[in-house]
């Protein structure tokens, strides 16, 4: 295929046609400065139409030139007979040759190719155009392509991980948006996002509610809108709120255990550790001492513990009522 270098009037370049746009970055400030300083080093690639030109590669360069008040531009022009596939291949090759493409850009590139190739062929074709993609990544990228533009933006901003985004992609739009906004607003770590997402999905299933309904709850909103606590405090409060809704009996039991330990009031440096998840039967007492005097003091505290009227309650593992379950 021949590219012919031509000078093209910017007024007949169709900047609204984003058929071959791959780049997700909208910022042109650095490019503006560079073009203003040393001119346009790499000419964009355009496709000739009967009356206009479609941009195949160089969207930001053209935007920068228009911004600088240029009226014409040096471009490499592809003949109007070039097929959509040929143009897509040029766009992908040109973009991937200049930088590594992010997930969204890779998914856009693959979407272009998947109009013409099956999964096996597309992996081979993508490799020829500079994209290294395996079958597992292909599946993720196909799902990424289906995500709403809002969720794609949160991935690009680094607010949510691809894994979380793909989970959001499976939800109804209001629920996905509500969670996306929650993560955007509180910016929790990816691990906490994953925990919150799992909790919220399961609570919604248990209560037969949509996630958006769940996140519209008065108490939840009061935490989110509380201007007197920090973002981290909000994250902690919301996690606890979700935990309490997801596992009401466990949370209540743990709270009761903590209250009991407060009433028993062991000295600070003596810790009574229950079995993991209260499942086993072995409790531990851990204490440190620096000398015989301190040892004697701790020993006396342990002797008092044995006589404490509520000590026995630690081992009861009773729950008052579990009707609130589910």
């Amino acid at each position: 295929m021949l590219f012919s270098p031509q000078t093209i009037a910017l007024s007949i370049v169709d900047v609204a046609d984003t058929t071959y746009k791959i780049s997700t970055s909208e910022s042109i400030e650095e490019l503006l400065a560079s073009i203003n300083c040393i001119g346009l080093l790499s000419p964009p690639i355009l496709k000739k139409n009967p009356r206009t030109y479609t941009i195949i590669s160089g969207f930001k360069r053209i935007a920068a030139c228009i911004n600088l008040g240029w009226t014409t531009i040096e471009a490499r022009v592809v003949d109007y007979k070039a097929s959509d596939l040929q143009c897509a291949r040029i766009a992908i090759a040109d973009n991937s040759a200049n930088r590594s493409l992010n997930f969204i850009e890779q998914s856009i590139s693959l979407s272009m190719l998947l109009n013409y190739y099956d999964d096996k062929e597309v992996i081979r074709e993508a490799k020829g155009l500079g994209l290294n993609i395996n079958a597992s990544l292909l599946e993720k990228l196909k799902k990424t392509a289906q995500l709403s533009s809002e969720i794609k933006k949160t991935i690009l901003r680094g607010t949510i991980s691809l894994t979380i985004a793909l989970e959001l992609g499976k939800m109804d739009k209001p629920s996905a948006m509500a969670l996306s906004q929650l993560f955007e607003s509180l910016n929790p770590t990816f691990n906490i996002q994953k925990e919150m997402l799992t909790m919220v999905k399961e609570i919604a299933r248990i209560k037969d509610l949509s996630i958006s309904q769940l996140l519209n709850d008065k108490y939840f909103l009061s935490i989110m809108e509380n201007g007197e606590i920090s973002r981290n405090q909000k994250v902690q409060k919301i996690r606890y709120y979700f935990k309490k809704m997801r596992n009401p009996v466990i949370t209540q039991f743990e709270e009761n255990f903590d209250c009991l330990m407060q009433r028993i009031d062991l000295p600070d440096e003596i810790k009574l550790i229950p079995p993991d998840n209260f499942e086993g039967t072995k409790y531990s007492i851990v204490f440190n001492f620096q000398n015989p005097k301190e040892f004697e003091f701790k020993k006396e505290a342990l002797d008092k513990l044995m006589l404490h009227p509520e000590f026995i309650k630690i081992f009861e593992k009773e729950i008052a009522d579990y009707k609130s379950l589910h």
Partner: peptide
């Protein structure tokens, strides 16, 4: 909760 045999079990109480 995760039980002592690594299976998920209802909370013991």
């Amino acid at each position: 909760i995760k039980g002592m045999d690594a299976k998920m079990r209802y909370f013991k109480p």
